[in-house]
Design a binder for these strands. Structure first.
Length: 645
DNA sequence: AATGGATGTCCG
DNA sequence: GGACATCCATTT
């Protein structure tokens, strides 16, 4: 008789993940089995074989007729479980497809191996140097720091070919937006069969893809969102993470993992490497790479030589003389729009809706209300008539006059895309306008209307963050940013980094051809480093500035963070319980800093109140200890949060 | 007596 | 996390 530790894919006990079962045959690790637990029958994975325990064991009911899950993937899942203090069963639910025991109809031969004409491109010197370096890497993480249009995709493709030739598979991760079709199309020109996984697949489709990978004997190329890391690939050679700065690489539900961290652990298990491709590497990741002496490959020039750099103009919103014709749109923006539209070209007006809510700033000099304790921007609570810091919880009175210029022009209002649309429609009544916002529908709407956008049938595009990403619009000539500093007023230590990324993306929308293009950026804080250095695309200086600021304030990469959110039906209970936990943590863990409790940025969600605590610690293990004393219900735990909101 | 909600215990 | 038991309050 053989004894095995089996991890069921559902939580059985809060503090235990594996249970011992027996079977009369030798089974391999990673084998999927059916076991009875209490009165239910559950699927489980064999984690290890053990000797006979001193208690009675049940027999493994059946062994699923499937190849075992690769050992490296199981090890990665176990690592995730401990690193993110999440039950192994919760992690395994990512690893196995839903409805794994269901019978599926025989796949309707969706073999999409249609052969296309393969475009052979010639790499420029920088690109081939990058490919050579990547090909020579054995393990670890390389950062491919290439400006928009520097031809990162071509580098990915060449490198992927190299890995395939070595008989190993490649995972290409893309952010979770429906705009990945361009990258996919380019890959399809070079590889006959690509395995695609995306968030809109049905349960049966996912199952089929998973089965296909599990059965595959030859190396594969997989393109998909962060969940593609969990496909049962036998031998991985490289994980390429495209747009590696994107926040969607952090899952916002348990297990709250960072795909960057998981990719590096998975890669290490496979003796493979990770490539983070982005125009704006995350400051923390760049720091990590330089500390570990990992390669950082910089590609400064655009791949196509004939392109014309866009003309960038910054409009100081505190200077009212520049806004004679409209309070939202500067005179030069209106003039530029008029000219571009008259010539029959396309314009894009971008506005960061988030953060442009109720913020407090001086319209005269651009001063904005910052917390005297921790420096984060303050949020107005109109009902209390107080300015509150959502990071450390300190309350401040609302100034009646600007502390900087003593003017009385303190404003609290924000701007919405709807307002922009109606105002722009008044200015250009005969033009076709399309507005994109609302986070979930946006991706599908964009997909549907992409052809119209691409063909230039829409004159004016108005939208929030997502329109600034990955869209390739050949008719686009002008991009206007209504208030570039909008995101800076968010009470989040990473806000300025996000703004820097955003400006880079916006600039990347134009200047992709030989046409004359322009970017007009309006801002109350034109001299803020994120904006100034974003415009000049000076990553190095932004990196150094941000790093020293983070060091000073004790934020990553110099500390680890733990975000604890307390959710109760009544505000009183939320406050009381978060206060209590804050005290417990402060008393039992003297070496950590506890910020809060403060109302969560999204204070009321699903008819409940949310208050949060932020814990900063030099040692990550201390945060894991803290997690273990957090009450199991009413609390959400987020280790290494990507955002404090 | 029947129903339903809240709470507690066990799970190899 | 879910199946099930047990307790207690409310409904008929």
């Amino acid at each position: 008789m053989y004894y095995y530790e089996v991890a069921p894919v559902r939580i059985i006990r809060a503090k235990q993940a594996c249970f011992t079962y027996h079977h009369d045959q030798i089974l391999s690790i990673g084998q999927l089995v059916s076991v009875s637990v209490g009165k239910q029958i559950l699927t489980g994975i064999i984690i290890r074989n053990v000797s006979r325990p001193n208690y009675e064991t049940k027999v493994i009911s059946s062994v699923l007729p499937l190849p075992p899950i690769p050992k490296q993937l199981i090890d990665t899942a176990c690592w995730m479980s401990s690193y993110y203090a999440t039950h192994l069963a919760t992690v395994l639910q990512m690893v196995l497809p839903r409805g794994i025991t269901k019978k599926r109809r025989i796949s309707a031969s969706r073999d999409l191996s249609f052969s296309r004409d393969r475009t052979h491109f010639l790499l420029n010197e920088t690109q081939s140097l990058a490919v050579d370096t990547l090909n020579s890497i054995e393990v670890g993480t390389a950062i491919l720091h290439g400006v928009t249009g520097s031809g990162k995709t071509a580098v990915y493709i060449e490198h992927a070919k190299h890995i395939l030739l070595r008989g190993k598979s490649v995972i290409v991760l893309v952010p979770e937006i429906a705009l990945t079709s361009q990258l996919l199309a380019e890959f399809q020109q070079h590889f006959p069969s690509i395995i695609v996984s995306h968030s809109q697949q049905t349960e049966a489709e996912r199952h089929r893809v998973w089965q296909q990978v599990l059965d595959s004997l030859s190396p594969v190329i997989v393109i998909g969102p962060r969940s593609a890391l969990f496909l049962p690939i036998k031998s991985i050679g490289a994980v390429i993470v495209d747009e590696a700065h994107e926040p969607s690489y952090k899952q916002d539900q348990a297990p709250r993992y960072s795909a960057l961290r998981v990719a590096s652990v998975l890669a290490r298990a496979h003796e493979a490497h990770v490539i983070q491709g982005t125009a704006t590497p995350l400051v923390s990741e760049y720091y990590l790479a330089s500390m570990a002496h990992q390669p950082v490959l910089t590609m400064r020039e655009r791949a196509v030589k004939k392109t014309l750099e866009p003309n960038i103009e910054v409009v100081d919103m505190t200077n009212k003389a520049l806004f004679r014709r409209h309070r939202l749109f500067s005179d030069s923006l209106i003039q530029n729009l008029t000219e571009t539209l008259a010539a029959g070209h396309q314009v894009l007006l971008f506005h960061n809706r988030r953060g442009s809510a109720a913020i407090t700033l001086c319209e005269h000099c651009g001063w904005s209300a910052l917390c005297p304790v921790c420096g984060t921007p303050l949020t107005l609570h109109a009902d209390l008539h107080r300015l509150q810091c959502h990071v450390c919880g300190k309350n401040n009175r609302v100034p009646t006059a600007c502390p900087s210029c003593h003017g009385a022009e303190i404003i609290h209002k924000g701007i919405g895309t709807k307002l922009i649309e109606s105002e722009i429609a008044k200015l250009f009544p005969e033009k076709v306008i399309a507005r994109f916002d609302g986070d979930t529908q946006l991706a599908t709407t964009l997909e549907k209307r992409y052809q119209e956008l691409y063909d230039g049938k829409i004159d004016i595009i108005i939208g929030t963050q997502v329109v600034a990403k990955g869209l390739d619009l050949p008719h686009l000539r002008t991009v206007g940013v209504i208030q570039a500093d909008a995101g800076l007023s968010l009470p989040d230590y990473i806000a300025s980094e996000r703004t820097f990324q955003l400006i880079s993306q916006v600039i990347g929308r134009v200047g992709r051809s030989a046409h004359k293009t322009s970017v007009i950026l309006q801002s109350y804080q034109p001299d803020h480093p994120a904006i100034k250095l974003g415009i000049t695309q000076n990553y190095q200086e932004f990196y150094q500035t941000t790093l020293s600021e983070r060091r000073g304030r004790g934020f990553p990469p110099f500390t680890y963070l733990l975000k604890l959110t307390c959710i109760y039906k009544t505000e009183r209970a939320a406050i009381r319980n978060s206060q209590q936990l804050a005290n417990t943590v402060k008393n039992s863990f003297p070496h950590v800093a506890v910020l809060g409790p403060t109302p969560a940025f999204y204070e009321r969600q699903y008819n409940s109140y949310r208050w949060q605590l932020l814990v900063q610690s030099k040692k990550r293990s201390t945060l894991l200890e803290i997690v273990s004393i957090v009450p199991p219900s009413h609390w959400q735990v987020d280790l290494d949060p990507y955002t404090l909101l």
